[in-house]
Design a protein around this nucleic acid. Structure first.
Lengths: 184, 184
DNA sequence: GTCTATACGAAGATAGAC
DNA sequence: GTCTATCTTCGTATAGAC
């Protein structure tokens, strides 16, 4: 396995995916053409199609990116000595959101209603986030509220579900914000 | 003003809009073509374009329909002698939702992130629903909990906001349900 | 691997007969 | 008002040179 070549390939894939994300957040999943992405990335159609089989694959990559962005952050909170309480948890989630990513996230929800591949990604990402939130709430109950781990994990479930729901609603609100209002 | 002719025109518009809704819920806002809508409605492209200026207008009509469906129901609850408490309110909202309409609603959210006309409709509909929910919670506080109207209206605000958020999350969950799972 | 040029198909919208 | 037939544009994807 040629390591350096693979790294280079991955770099190009990332470059293309990031350009695509900017286009999607600006014009939407379906309204951005390959031509838009070539313009944004500075590459050519030929190059893009050597790294991604189809536009659908690019959309899937964007869906994963838009939805997984905050995964690493939550893991840190779980491991910390003083995990946030539910209200603080929600507040932090909301504060850490990037408007462009929020728009793409909401777009992927719409796409997921009719595209099975995107639906699988979206459902998986939402469930994984909910699981991490449950871990975080459990950690708070154990470390701060001094509950027993087993009981804490049970009690954490409905709380995490509510935090997840409120967070998704906030994500929608962020995605509906018009791009021109963003800098206010 | 020819009354009968106008009624007939409105009937055709409704017929087309309903066919479009079925197509949208099945294939998504962008993936359904005018040809799909002609097939579903039994009409021809020419006929459709005499009733709607463009496909965009059809999408806007669908957005309004998908989002306003439950407006009338809430109004009834507000006027009733025993308005539902917040938990019951949410449960009723969730129970009254139609899977196809939920899918189109989620699709319109995605579209709203980049299309100003759709965004205006979506934001307006969400705000109006929130206002109705506030009225409903206020009515409950006054009629069942016997609070004073002015204080009730204040207290109702944050409660209605939470019900609204949880409802939107449920709507998303419903929209993500795959159509084949619906009848289970 | 990356480019330019292009083939191919699809979709929105219209023209004109009835 | 509604139909059939079609015009035009645009977008995905590929071919082939470098």
């Amino acid at each position: 396995m040629p390591r350096l070549t693979d790294a280079r390939k991955e770099l190009r894939r990332t470059q293309i995916a990031e350009a695509a994300m900017r286009c999607f957040s600006r014009s939407g999943l379906e309204r951005t053409s390959i031509a838009d992405i070539t313009a944004e990335s500075g590459l050519s159609p030929g190059s893009i199609y050597t790294h991604y089989r189809s536009k659908a694959e690019l959309v899937q990559a964007a869906a994963r990116r838009a939805l997984s962005e905050r995964a690493a952050v939550i893991d840190e909170w779980v491991a910390s000595d003083a995990p946030p309480d539910p209200d603080e948890l929600l507040a932090r989630l909301v504060a850490s959101k990037d408007p462009a990513a929020a728009r793409v996230a909401v777009q992927t929800w719409g796409e997921a209603t009719t595209d099975p591949a995107i639906r699988a990604i979206v459902v998986d990402m939402i469930e994984r986030t909910r699981a991490m939130l449950r871990d975080c709430v459990t950690a708070w109950l154990v470390k701060v509220e001094h509950e027993k781990p087993a009981a804490a994990r049970e009690r954490a479930k409905p709380i995490a579900e509510r935090v997840s729901a409120l967070y998704l609603a906030q994500l929608l609100a962020a995605g509906l914000q018009s791009p021109t209002e963003e800098t206010i």
